[in-house]
Nucleic acid binder design. Structure first.
Length: 692
DNA sequence: CCACGTTGTCATTGC
DNA sequence: AAGCAATGACAACGT
């Protein structure tokens, strides 16, 4: 048992727990087998790092080729992967010899390797930090551990505190016990101040304190069975005990106490699983308060494996589902990604490094991320991940009956966590329950698609890539009824999360991005229960293909940003095609709307013109009538004047002039002549002839 | 059931 | 050449 504890502390903790779960008759389909590096290698690595082994090694399930993880020089606590490490170690072989159904590494491992190889120390740092946190968190605190990594270890200290490989740099003044937050995320020491502040806020939660006390008490109970040195540890606060444990681990890693035999260990594992269970006391396994709560008193040594597995599933997701900014394609963008606000997701932290990719795992552990990453250069492992997720889903389903939402809610006991999850996303998960699982392609929760036009780009991204995870802060203080609700949501999320890949009508398997019979309305009619019915066709298609962008983003984005976005993210041809189609259709839709609007405006303007012309016509008619009237008056006056003049005219004999025979004619000099009409008529004829 | 309006989409054209 | 706006035409849907 002593060896076992040391082994756990030395870095095999997660494997340890995994083995326990397996020996307990539960299949553990996690790729979290860990290989303990040989002391010599550890020593070399320590020399290479010039730092404590506890900070150098991560319990990384993301080992490059065999589970070997070493700290890198890119970051004080960053991890690199040893390419020269053996592909399979003795431990794995022995595990397989025992028949423990370990699942090999997933694409995440290779992806992480890829990220590290690509020079993205931040990504590696963040993810491996998450891995370390999850490893230390053990099977019972998967989400917790991942969340710790997201927040740079600023969350629940129990998830990462006992991390055997966390550095001794966590040595803090005993005067502030709540500040002893292990840097599960592998952040630099200067970040710890911020983390400590956050964690102080975290610890102020009454529930949290209660759990702390429980864990502390149970740890003390377990540690009383150990040697005197460990008894001293048990008397200390748990955070201090953890430090001691870490220092013990450090001794192990330094080669001073690594003489235990793995074969002995597995013989022990195979022969006495019950004792092993006892060996995994709460003081050794950093189970969160939720688990320990369920193991009070008589149940102290009985781990709720169903819960543990369910949490491990979430841990797996937490590890796998990295932020979307971690699967960029552009290496240059990776180097500057932390500076792009577009990718700084969900950061309440003031520490810039906490916004680094890989550290923002809290609320964005979406299937989209996972999916997107799987669609990248790790396509060869894509199917493997699908299978793993399927198995996880099955496990979730199998353990759903025994699922205790209280524990889950307590596992999310992160008052300061920023998961980026909105209530809407939870609501989306609710719709998942309602929706037909066979049509999960169209389900809400698959993506948590964000259609909020007002949200910023990164918020859109958040919603797009995985906003449906239950928000820990929302879950941690729920009453029983609410806990039931959210617990169901959690499980719905889990198995819904990974089933869309398996749909026979999955878009990936068809030439069409979405199996719509041509129009979205048909889709809506086909899925009457789908709460996404209000989504547009393209939104549904985007969701079906797990496009991590909102339609509004895709359509409204400038072409340069659009192209850079396409190049920055790992997208399949189908996804790129769909995104371009969405953009084209979206722009064309807007253009059509504008066109119709213009057409309508033109018609309205023409109608106005017609009205104006008609009015003008009426006016002109009136003017014409008035003119005619005036002309007639003038004619009448001229006629009267004519007769008046002729009445006063007299010829040579004094007789009146007949106006029918004579006419008045004005000359150029202004004089008026009385001319016989015959001459006037002949003169008009001559002028007419001249004109012709 | 038909007519009409609305909306989305596609194809085409021109800038 | 690529991207985009504009627009005619068509289909689906709602009223």
């Amino acid at each position: 048992m002593k060896h076992l504890k040391r082994w756990w502390s030395a870095g095999g903790g997660l494997l340890h727990l995994t083995l326990l779960l397996s020996l307990a008759g539960l299949r553990v389909d996690l790729d979290l087998y860990l290989l303990l590096p040989p002391p010599s290698l550890l020593q070399d690595e320590l020399l290479f790092l010039g730092g404590p082994a506890s900070s150098a090694y991560a319990l990384s399930p993301f080992s490059a080729s065999g589970g070997w993880g070493r700290a890198g020089h890119l970051h004080p606590k960053g991890r690199e992967l040893d390419p020269a490490a053996p592909p399979e170690g003795q431990l794995l072989r022995e595990v397989r010899a025992l028949g423990v159904p370990f699942v090999p590494r997933t694409s995440v491992d290779a992806w992480l390797v890829h990220s590290v190889a690509a020079g993205s120390a931040d990504e590696a740092h963040g993810l491996l930090g998450a891995a370390a946190a999850s490893s230390t968190g053990g099977a019972g605190a998967s989400v917790d551990g991942g969340s710790q990594a997201v927040q740079g270890g600023g969350g629940d200290p129990r998830a990462a505190r006992s991390g055997p490989l966390d550095a001794g740099e966590e040595e803090k003044a005993p005067a502030e016990p709540t500040a002893q937050v292990p840097d599960a995320g592998g952040c630099a020491s200067e970040e710890n101040e911020v983390l400590r502040e956050k964690h102080e806020a975290v610890d102020h939660s009454s529930q949290h304190e209660e759990n702390e006390e429980r864990v502390s008490a149970q740890k003390e109970n377990s540690l009383q069975q150990n040697n005197d040195d460990e008894n001293k540890i048990a008397e200390k606060p748990d955070w201090e005990a953890e430090k001691t444990t870490e220092s013990r681990n450090e001794r192990h890693l330094n080669g001073t106490d690594t003489s235990f035999s793995l074969e002995d260990l597995f013989q022990l594992l195979s022969s006495q699983p019950e004792n092993l269970l006892e060996g995994i006391s709460l003081g050794d396994i950093p189970l969160p308060g939720s688990i320990s709560d369920g193991m009070n008193s008589s149940a102290h040594y009985h781990v709720n494996f169903s819960q543990a597995i369910s949490q491990d599933v979430n841990l797996h997701e937490a590890i796998l589902l990295c932020p979307n900014n971690t699967f960029r394609r552009d290496p240059t963008a990776r180097t500057s990604q932390s500076q792009e606000p577009f990718l700084q997701l969900n950061s309440h932290t003031t520490n810039p490094e906490q916004t680094l990719p890989g550290t923002n795992l809290t609320g964005f552990l979406s299937p989209v991320d996972n999916h997107m990453r799987n669609l990248t250069s790790q396509d060869l492992l894509y199917d493997l991940d699908i299978n793993i997720f399927d198995e996880i889903n099955l496990m979730s389903l199998a353990t759903e009956d025994n699922f205790d939402p209280i524990d889950v809610s307590q596992l999310f006991d992160e008052p300061d966590s920023d998961s980026g999850l909105s209530l809407d996303s939870s609501h989306n998960s609710t719709s998942v329950i309602k929706s037909n699982s066979s049509h999960s392609v169209c389900d809400d929760g698959a993506i948590g698609y964000c259609t909020d036009h007002e949200s910023s780009s990164h918020h859109d991204l958040e919603g797009a890539v995985g906003g449906y995870h239950p928000e820990p802060s929302k879950l941690c203080h729920l009453d029983q009824s609410d806990s039931d609700f959210h617990g169901d949501l959690t499980f719905q999320h889990v198995f819904h999360n990974h089933t869309y890949h398996l749909q026979p009508s999955a878009p990936e398997s068809t030439s069409e991005p979405f199996p719509w019979p041509g129009k979205s309305q048909k889709i809506r009619s086909r899925y009457p229960e789908d709460t996404d019915r209000n989504l547009s066709r393209d939104e549904q298609r985007a969701k079906a293909l797990h496009i991590p962008f909102s339609v509004d983003e895709i359509v409204g984005m400038p072409v340069d940003s659009f192209n850079s976005m396409l190049s920055r993210y790992y997208l399949t041809d189908l996804q790129v095609s769909l995104i371009r189609d969405i953009r084209r259709r979206g722009k064309n839709k807007v253009a059509a709307q504008n066109c119709r609007k213009r057409k309508l405006d033109i018609i309205l303007n023409l109608e106005d013109d017609v009205c104006n012309l008609q009015a003008k016509k009426e006016t002109l008619k009136r003017e014409q009538a008035q003119c005619n009237k005036a002309i007639n008056i003038m004619k009448q006056k001229l006629h009267d004047l004519y007769h008046d003049i002729f009445s006063r005219l007299r010829d040579d004999q004094g007789r009146p002039v007949n106006p029918n025979h004579y006419a008045l004619q004005c000359t150029h000099d202004g004089s008026i002549l009385i001319v016989p009409k015959e001459l006037v008529a002949s003169g008009h004829k001559k002028e007419a002839r001249k004109r012709k």
